[in-house]
Amino acid sequence: MNIFRLAGDMTHLLSVLVLLLKIHTIKSCAGISLKTQELYAVVFATRYLDIFTSYISPYNTMMKLIFLGSSFSIVWYMRYHKIVRRSYDKDQDTFRPYILMLPCLILALLINEKFTFKEISTSFFLFVMWTFSLYLEAVAILPQLVMLQRTRNIDNLTGQYVFLLGAYRALYILNWIYRYFTEEHFVHWITWISGLVQTLLYADFFYYYFQSWKNNVKLQLPA
């Protein structure tokens, strides 16, 4: 564990807590994309399939449970909570998740660390699901970014949520650089490239977020 990865995990945790805080306290999910939340639930469900078979550390298991629990409860709130669901603007959240999930699944079958299609085994299934979750996580924010461009006034908590979500993966990139130079044979091209793509997708959001912070004006993304 290094400082970049710990900071990344804490930033990721904070992003989830900010969103849960918004939804749980003011009972509103205005401006939040349910599609992105559902994609994140799929990301964690496919990423942590091994939560009961492979034990790494109490920290690792605890964080996995927190991410699984929070992502599914956010989806539950937005779908079924009688007050929260009223503030969900489904007309603005029109991104079709399947146009993201299918290519990620096909890509995971073609490009993963195993490359051997012949041994259809449990570990191959785990590899494909894990790789799928990496690719899906890289693009899961797209429905949310599209929705931000449509909703004119982005409230602070939503802006902070997206900012923290992007920052966590940027910190992970620093973690990968650090581990590459400090650990033998630490090479994970698939993780690195999808993590880089993921962070680059936030580039314009980061720019406008920084501008709004610097000029102390309301965050607005150009349509």
């Binding site: 995990d9 449990t122 570990s123 785990l126």
Partner: peptide, 10 residues
């Protein structure tokens, strides 16, 4: 045990 793709990261 199953060979784990997911290294120790979340």
């Amino acid at each position: 045990p199953l060979q784990q793709p997911m290294h120790d990261e979340l």
